[in-house]
Nucleic acid binder design. Structure first.
Lengths: 146, 146
DNA sequence: ACAATTATGGATATATTTGTCTTTTATTAT
DNA sequence: ATAATAAAAGACAAATATATCCATAATTGT
């Protein structure tokens, strides 16, 4: 459904949201090992998320690392998709027609439209913060370890 | 959601199902221009669908081309996904965790599970034949042209 | 000031996907 | 038989995605 880059982006962001804050920044090493992703590749992704798109924040030097502002925590997961330029998955025709629409629907359009709507809601409804919050009882995971 | 190859595979198959039959085989040129896909690349995809996976049939030479057997027409669209090795989209974790499950769910698992179920139904419920049939009144399209 | 730390940035490498082009093989009609 | 037709097959090219490595810049603590 999504590229590896976007998968890592979502995993990393949720991890940072759950484990980090301004007083406890998380290093790229911890992040990448925790979410099971290649370190340097993940670092670049976090740059994307922090650079133009203000989803995560970072500082360098000792005790530096990644964290999220309380404002960013309010963002929906969809903001990550947008930052990664993969929001189109929630919009485009399932068989790749660029003219597919209500007027010229593809054979799967009618049914898929309803699914897309739910996908949009899934990524729109809950904030990153809420997801991270739900994880705190230890019943949800973003790790492949153990 | 799917690779270009799979998008082309679905479009081509539905096109062949609708326009072709054993007495009226469709050439790769007509197919690729009709569904708006690169000709030779599409040809390779049709080979995949005809080789091991008996989804489409073909014959060479004059009046040759592609068509579908009445048996193949009964297959669901999901058979195309399987042939293209993209059936995993309907199974894997939305954020790419390979350990994501009911026991160790990711933060999006519960909601996404329901969506995956509908995706499976979408690609499982209707046969390629039925889709092609629905197109015959000219209210559904798999072309980008005009 | 200096050394240690940690993200940033750039260069490069590898793999995969997508796309094109040419030759070969099978089939048909003449 | 021969020529025309059309898919099959193989080689190659381009684009994109994924991944690694190294140097640089910023920050902190001493």
């Amino acid at each position: 459904m999504f590229s590896k880059a976007t998968e890592y982006a979502i995993r990393a962001t949720i991890y940072i949201a759950q484990k980090g804050n301004i007083d406890n920044k998380i290093g790229i090493n911890e992040i990448s090992t925790s979410i099971d992703s290649p370190q340097h590749f993940t670092a670049k992704i976090l740059q994307i998320l922090s650079k133009k798109n203000q989803i995560i924040s970072s500082t360098r030097g000792p005790n530096g690392g990644f964290y999220m502002s309380s404002k960013a925590l309010k963002l929906p997961v969809r903001a990550i998709l947008k930052a990664m330029n993969e929001d189109t998955v929630l919009e485009k025709c399932v068989i790749g027609l660029n003219k597919c629409s209500e007027i010229k629907p593809c054979p799967l359009h009618k049914q898929y439209k309803l699914i897309k709507l739910q996908l949009i809601q899934l990524f729109e409804n809950k904030s990153i913060e809420e997801l991270a919050e739900e994880m705190k009882d230890g019943k949800l995971y973003i790790t492949n370890k153990k």
